[in-house]
């Protein structure tokens, strides 16, 4: 639907890590929520998170009664011999009537497309489709209806892609920003033996260590590897390899070789994204608290409605929710980020 300012009303796609989080997101104004099962079939396979099949079924009822959609993330890569778990996840989703399944693996996409020709498929960011041709491959082969774009493109590049693909675009607007191309990173596995692609975990909590010395300087480690070290009172981010500080021969002292511990916040770019042809705006954070989800979703609901009504989005409050209270527009604003 087009309004006078030329905007198409975007779908606000929000994280649902738990049934309570799902209700919070929907009550706060989410148009759609995304969630996963309690196993390796989704990319947020954390203890205490996600849904049992029974919980998902109830959640779908809650969402549909309120006009919201449920998108099921089955977006990791089954390893040989373990395909049944992913098949089962797709089967549950299809039978329960989820509004779409978010897939990344070619085998899973192939299964879902053949077994359930009417099931709507979204291509996960984990599939790493970053060019029109790459996206068209998945549209052509599996009838993918929407692609979740990697967080590496500028707004004008997104607009350009939009003109060259036959499916909808979903873009991240807020939350944790990984520095590496999603679905193409084995750094966690290199250090911990747990694979992000196969097991659905990045920087597993069991391998995270915070060590304080006598002067109260804090060292953060993942497994045996020092990720960062901060002086007493400074903010220490969760130890993620791509946001750590390292030393190399061409720089003096430690530096953030990949990215600083910042969060993505595209609130200022909302109007541009909406004009670029983005169908759905995605908020990251299935691992976050209900309170966090509620405030972020409400803020973006107000902002999106504001843009549609021709008002200033005004999202200053969101800074308090970003990592280390520091935010970035990442790749979206300009090529200089690269």
């Amino acid at each position: 639907m087009n309004d006078d300012a030329g905007y198409i009303r975007p779908e606000l796609v929000c994280p649902a890590g738990t049934p309570a989080g799902l209700r919070a997101a929907i009550d706060a104004g989410a148009d759609a929520v995304y969630c996963g099962f309690q196993n390796a079939t989704n990319a947020r396979n954390f203890p205490g998170l996600n849904f049992t099949p029974a919980e998902l079924e109830q959640a779908i009822g809650y969402a549909h009664a309120r006009g919201a959609k449920v998108l099921l993330a089955v977006n990791t890569f089954p390893s040989a011999g373990k395909f049944d778990l992913w098949r089962e996840a797709v089967d549950y989703g299809a039978r329960m009537g989820v509004d779409a399944v978010i897939v990344a693996d070619i085998g899973v996409a192939d299964y879902a497309a053949r077994a359930y020709p009417n099931l709507r498929l979204h291509l996960s960011v984990q599939a790493g489709a970053s060019s029109p041709e790459g996206i068209r491959f998945y549209c052509q082969e599996f009838g993918v209806k929407r692609v979740v774009l990697p967080r590496i493109l500028t707004v004008s590049e997104i607009a350009d892609i939009h003109r060259q693909i036959p499916c909808e675009i979903e873009a991240f607007i807020f939350g944790n920003i990984g520095m590496m191309a999603e679905g193409r990173c084995s750094l966690t596995n290199y250090v911990t033996g747990v694979s992000t692609n196969m097991d659905g975990v990045c920087s597993p909590a069991a391998d995270v260590h915070y060590v304080e010395d006598a002067d109260r300087n804090l060292t953060t480690r993942l497994g045996a590897v020092v990720i960062d070290r901060v002086a007493c009172g400074e903010f220490a981010g969760y130890p993620t390899i791509c946001k750590g500080r390292y030393v190399c021969g061409v720089k003096s002292g430690g530096y953030y070789a990949f990215e600083e511990p910042v969060s993505l916040n595209l609130s200022a770019l909302l109007p541009d994204l909406m004009r670029a042809g983005v169908t759905a705006l995605k908020i990251e954070g299935r691992q976050r608290s209900r309170a966090y989800v509620k405030s972020v979703v409400s803020a973006f609901r107000t902002a999106v409605d504001g843009v549609l009504a021709g008002r200033d989005p005004g999202l200053a409050d969101l800074l308090a929710l970003t990592e280390g209270h520091r935010q970035t527009e990442g790749a979206f604003r300009s090529k200089a980020w690269r």
Partner: peptide, 16 residues
């Protein structure tokens, strides 16, 4: 181990 949109060689040399 990983790919990115950002060039880390350039970043190490304070370039883009």
């Amino acid at each position: 181990l990983a790919l990115s949109a950002r060039c880390y060689h350039a970043r190490a040399h304070s370039r883009t």
